[in-house]
Design a protein around this nucleic acid. Structure first.
Lengths: 342, 342
DNA sequence: TTGTAAGCGTTATCAC
DNA sequence: GTGATAACGCTTACAA
């Protein structure tokens, strides 16, 4: 008995459907494959469709993937999923991907090394990967060879990407603070080589310089992009002699701002009375804090969604040329409760 | 030319390795398959391994999956990934899964309906799914048919699962508050049919009853398990006439507690001076708030890790019998800054 | 010990 | 229009 038995414990295959409909397996594939140029008589089509329905047929994407050399799956890598910003990026990717029939395999760099994850993704034949904010350019040469890649917030000659207006974000924060009359300003942000973060800092510094306001190094705090990083940064800032102590601080990441705010509140420093704080990202947390965080909104979901569209367009266009990135996504200042006049 | 050409643009296959090593493709599979009972001479093995290395051979998991009827991928579904608690559960799953060579396909019920996601997972031939906290039992019968399932925080005769001590969590909160002398207590939590959440409430109520303390319905607030839910709940609680107004509130979810805290702070109600708040979960956010949130720690990652182990054990044991769930994971009261004496 | 061959469930190219 | 038939890259008896 070489043919497979109709084992109802096993999912129905095109063969099962074919047998039931009294047609060949190939015909079933034609009908069910949704191939537009499939010329099948309405009659057999109907027979096939009914048989498929009766058997509860579901196409096996693994088998399809093997022959098409396409898995309809993409990978996403971010530096830290517990940062809601990156979660939002991934959510944006998911949404678009699901729409287009792609599955998403997310990876968190803290959990598994980029190399390892990339290898795993490759083994699973993912059709492409989206890399966000962890210095993808610094990866070992071969790690990305032969993969379709889209970068988020990291410009590159080699791969297409999407970005937010990071320089503009820093600039907006600076202008807001300057507009409120602050002149002793501080900056707290990661010392990372992540491009987007560096640009936020640059925008801030540039705007200050243009306004003729100095940012001496003692008011510069390089800390990890986390709450405790912000906590530490602000603590040390508050320890400065009164003449040097800033009256306002821009934190390149909302989590850092949250930490900074906490440091002020526990030290009894009034916010925004004695210290103004501006974050960047506008994660949900910003509205949970009291007072609510003034911050620069960066459209994380939209960033992810665009990245996914960029990648999937490439994929569906049969290896078509890599589309170039569009304009950076605009950012927007959101004034809430942590900033006020000097 | 029926055989494939050595197109170096395409990843090397076992055939390529075989040709290069001068052995049959099957031998390559034997050597590289890591099959323990593969009896291959050290010499050919070495030849194969070297050839594979030279060609940069990487096994194609899709092909393997097809013949083994196993994808080495599992799905996870949670009600809300933006709740850090569930993210932690997924992280726990990821960790264990990665270790065992499984990929994880996470799904957020808010983004895509359970039915749809389950269908997608099925089409991708996932080996099993982990379902957390969204009334999986209420799913349409067929949706899970033939799937290996592990439930989190939702007991079932039909599927194995892991759980935290939800009743104990509510109880701990109650005892803590009672011990501080509070007698006018309130409860705020979701009206969901999620088992774990209901049990937290039950534990709380039971402990109060045993202490002879009443929980009148006007101090019961059924709100969505979100920050704004907590905000609304506390606002309305604060609107109660002084004689009925609670002096302490247990929130079944940390996010709700965060909202409740915010409501107090913006209303000028001192915490814990005039209102004590206890949350449940101990998400990272709890330590970001000021004052830090007193809460009951529920081991989310461990929950996810155990669920993954339970599932993968089943999977690797060749369809072995479903192992039963172990004891509920213990929870622990973490006293921080939002609770104090009356 | 190693090679041959039969699938796994699809898609896709042809003849008929 | 429809049906053989050959892949896709791999695992796994079974034969040599």
């Amino acid at each position: 008995m070489p043919t497979r038995r109709a084992d109802s414990a096993r999912p129905a295959t095109t063969h099962d459907v074919a047998r039931r409909a009294g047609v060949s397996q190939a015909t079933v594939s034609l009908v069910l494959g949704g191939n537009p140029r499939a010329r099948v008589s309405a009659q057999t089509r109907e027979r096939v469709v009914r048989a498929a329905g009766e058997l509860g047929y579901r196409p096996n994407l693994v088998a399809r993937g093997l022959v098409q050399r396409k898995s309809y799956a993409i990978g996403v890598m971010v530096p830290d999923l517990s940062n809601p910003f990156f979660l939002d990026v991934v959510t944006g990717v998911q949404r678009v991907a699901a729409e287009a029939g792609y599955a998403v395999l997310p990876g968190d760099v803290r959990e598994v090394s980029p190399q390892r994850h990339l290898e795993a993704l490759r083994a699973r034949q993912v059709d492409g990967v989206i890399l966000d904010g962890f210095g993808a350019l610094a990866l070992h040469e071969g790690a990305l060879s032969g993969m379709k890649v889209v970068l988020v917030d990291e410009p590159s000659e080699r791969w297409p990407g999407v970005a937010s207006d990071a320089v503009g974000a820093g600039r907006l924060a600076a202008e807001h603070l300057l507009g409120l009359g602050h002149t002793r300003l501080a900056f707290a942000g990661p010392a990372s080589d992540v491009h987007g973060l560096r640009m936020r800092e640059r925008g801030f510094v540039q705007a200050l310089r243009q306004a003729g306001v100095a940012l001496p190094s003692e008011r510069l705090r390089r800390v990890p992009p986390t709450v405790s990083g912000g906590l530490a940064a602000m603590k040390s800032l508050l320890g400065l002699p009164p003449a040097q102590r800033p009256t306002a601080c821009f934190c390149a990441v909302d989590l850092v701002a949250a930490g900074a705010l906490k440091a002020c509140l526990t030290a009894g420093v009034a916010v925004p009375g004695a210290m103004s704080i501006v974050g960047c990202d506008d994660v949900e947390l910003a509205r949970v804090l009291t007072p609510e965080l003034t911050t620069v909104r960066v459209p994380a979901r939209e960033l992810g969604a665009r990245a996914a569209r960029l990648l999937i367009r490439q994929l569906d266009d049969e290896g078509g040329s890599a589309p170039r990135a569009g304009r950076p996504l605009p950012v927007k200042l959101v004034v809430r409760g942590t900033t006020g006049p000097v």
